[in-house]
Design a protein around this nucleic acid. Sequence first.
DNA 1: AATATTTTTGCAAACGTTTGCAAAAAGTCT
DNA 2: AGACTTTTTGCAAACGTTTGCAAAAATATT
Lengths: 342, 342
Amino acid sequence: MQNNSRFTLSDLAKLAGVSTSTASRALRGNPIIKQQTRERIQALALEHNFSLNAAASRLRTQRTHVIAVILNLTEHTEQSINDPFLLKVVGDLNQALNERNYELLLSNSFMAKDDWTQYFIKSSRADGLIVVGQAKSDTKMIAAAEAGAPIVVWGDPHASAKYTVVGSENRLGAKQATEHLIKLGHTRPVFLGDLEHAEMGERYKGYCDALAAHNIPLDDSLVMSTDLTYQAGYDCINQSVKTNGLNFDGIFACSDMVALGAMKALKERYVNIPVDVAIIGFDDIPMAEMSHPALSSIKQNTKLAAEIMVTELLRQLNGEPGQSHAVGIELKIRHSSDPTRT
Amino acid sequence: MQNNSRFTLSDLAKLAGVSTSTASRALRGNPIIKQQTRERIQALALEHNFSLNAAASRLRTQRTHVIAVILNLTEHTEQSINDPFLLKVVGDLNQALNERNYELLLSNSFMAKDDWTQYFIKSSRADGLIVVGQAKSDTKMIAAAEAGAPIVVWGDPHASAKYTVVGSENRLGAKQATEHLIKLGHTRPVFLGDLEHAEMGERYKGYCDALAAHNIPLDDSLVMSTDLTYQAGYDCINQSVKTNGLNFDGIFACSDMVALGAMKALKERYVNIPVDVAIIGFDDIPMAEMSHPALSSIKQNTKLAAEIMVTELLRQLNGEPGQSHAVGIELKIRHSSDPTRT
DNA sequence: AATATTTTTGCAAACGTTTGCAAAAAGTCT
DNA sequence: AGACTTTTTGCAAACGTTTGCAAAAATATT
């Protein structure tokens, strides 16, 4: 490379015998420039593999074409960052953003400190924020929204939020899952999840809906609160069985990771799944169909959700108001709940 | 927010009664500014929650403090982007970068098109590249390195590469894994992996090493080539057993996903694992210990590797030459290979 | 008290784009 | 051929930092 100094737009323009303004407009495909000129300059740029300096462009236009995706994890960071579901969401967001010509700046709550708006938006690092990750408090999101930052969060879409939320039909999904257990004769299903968490709260309501629909009284001893990790699910069921014996015949878990943990605990005690205890999870991570028995689950459509989130964010960038969305879920029945399935 | 117009550095300076240059230096902690002045200005910045405009700063300094992480996937994108191992690496890189005050721009090969140097480096989008993902060709990496881009790739560290590589002791790991099977009496182990792939090539060598060390002749019919996905592992073993019967008594798989697929195929045929066939994988993804039976594996130390990659990249940014590293692995024995373990 | 030295600050020129506005070139009419 | 339009281009001023250099202020030295 004969790259003694940088090859800039004005160099390119000189080469083409036009002004930098013309070159700039030509590269951006501005129709005010004669088509013939445009094509000539674009070809020249390609030939000299020139590309515009993003920093300069961002400074001038005040637009970065970057979206910050914040993994909003709780204290025990190490745990959740490995959750396949969250990472899947990030992957889908990346795809969706790239398709719209935006780039994805990945961040965890560590770097961004407290003031997201200041760090990302005011400082011209990104045009907008997408928050994913199960936090129990949403003060930071509210702060960002109130400061006028374009923001979309993954979460419970039915919360009357101060910001735009996209998420699954949690309540409906949980109801379908629980009902599925009940219909197969498992009338004492456990609810396994984290009640402090907005999305899980909705799932709890769905669980109650299903019980009510079948005239089954709610038994508080079957409602178990636990962190959303594999280990926590294992510990919780282990402890419960040790203390109270096997006083349930089904489990609806708020995440597949928890469900798999619970399943392991039961398998160690030689409980017959799905005959004695039927299990269903939530998320439908790839692992679900690999486990043995394969885990029934509620599939969340993360790909669609990611697309909606991006659409909503771009809409906000255009000054239009945001709108929350609930995306549909799908019941995936496998062997862990239904002996007739594989 | 009284944010009619932007609050810039010179506004802050005016407020503090100093020049913008002083303010700039003060914020950056330049000791040439009197400490008292520095503190006063920093306090003022905090109070007005001011933060420097990154675009302007990048333009001026020609440094972005951003590293592009490229998920270098093969054609069938959908498959690999879900590989938990890759995503784990990204998570660890994020952590390592943030600790050094760098940000992570996530990219797949889709957006960056062909010329990484042009797109990321020349255009001031990032200062350096980290490539992760199992590609079969490394022309793009070579091109980037030759164009002078700071670059570190995850891969086989023993390749005599034109660029800096960080990866695991693949050959050693594979040897230990295979040897583990042999020592437990499984003298006809299958090698299950993708030979075209540099890292897997090394693992194949390790497999051969182990056979040689125990005077077991290499049987080509036990060397099976397959993509590195769950489905491919399943199909491959299924097909093999259907055609040739159970002519092996062990499997060393090049990734846990493949191993889990293989395991499923065997379980469906009621093969006793680990007695009739012992299985060991590679990566030690979280799923490994959740599967049933729990999957033995070779653990890759991605956290350490990520730190090394970042260190190496920053070194290159300082003009120092890069150096490849192999990080140690660890044999994780579980039930899928050893009936005495859980 | 004058000079030499050191510490602390400010001036002003970049960095490489984009874009409102005016000017030049080309095309259309009388 | 001149007087209009319309199309196509260029000028020059931003965008908000950082930094070499020189000037000013403070301190030390004779």
